[in-house]
């Protein structure tokens, strides 16, 4: 575990499998989507979204890729479109999806398989 001190060698582009580094580039791309999801902290906004998803997405200026990802409840596509998981979790809450449901959706497992994988990690 000998590594140089963090500093000028910091590299955003270093590739970590299955992981999107949410940096300025992604923050710019996902701003509208994340702003919409942030609004879901308030109950009246959650209700407005449920009442008319398309109108709500339009109001926040989501682009087509973001809208399509939301329509399809496709978490990986939301992340690719700039979504940040902390805000997306608020959208998931509207659909009553837990972080374990989200984990299963993103890894292509059933929720039971995903939970079993976590339990196995504790036995290692």
């Amino acid at each position: 575990m000998e590594h140089p001190v963090d500093g000028p060698r910091f590299d955003h582009r270093q590739h970590i499998p299955g992981t999107t580094i949410f940096d300025g580039r992604m923050a710019m791309r996902g701003y509208a989507l994340n702003k919409m999801c942030y609004s879901f902290n308030r109950k009246e906004n959650r209700e407005a979204f449920v009442a008319d998803e398309e109108a709500y997405m339009e109001k926040y200026g989501l682009n087509e890729a973001q809208k399509q990802a939301v329509r399809e409840r496709d978490v990986l596509a939301m992340i690719a479109a700039g979504g940040n998981i902390y805000y997306l979790a608020k959208l998931a809450g509207i659909f009553r999806l837990s972080v374990q449901d989200l984990g299963a959706m993103q890894t292509g497992m059933t929720v039971e398989e995903f939970k079993r994988k976590l339990l196995e990690a504790g036995k290692g």
């Binding site: 499998p17 299955g18 992981t19 978490v75 989200l102 993103q106 994988k117 990690a121």
Partner: peptide, 13 residues
């Protein structure tokens, strides 16, 4: 822990 991406569920004891 990791919540997002294909690596969701990653844990490293």
């Amino acid at each position: 822990h990791q919540l997002d991406g294909e690596r969701a569920g990653f844990i490293n004891p």
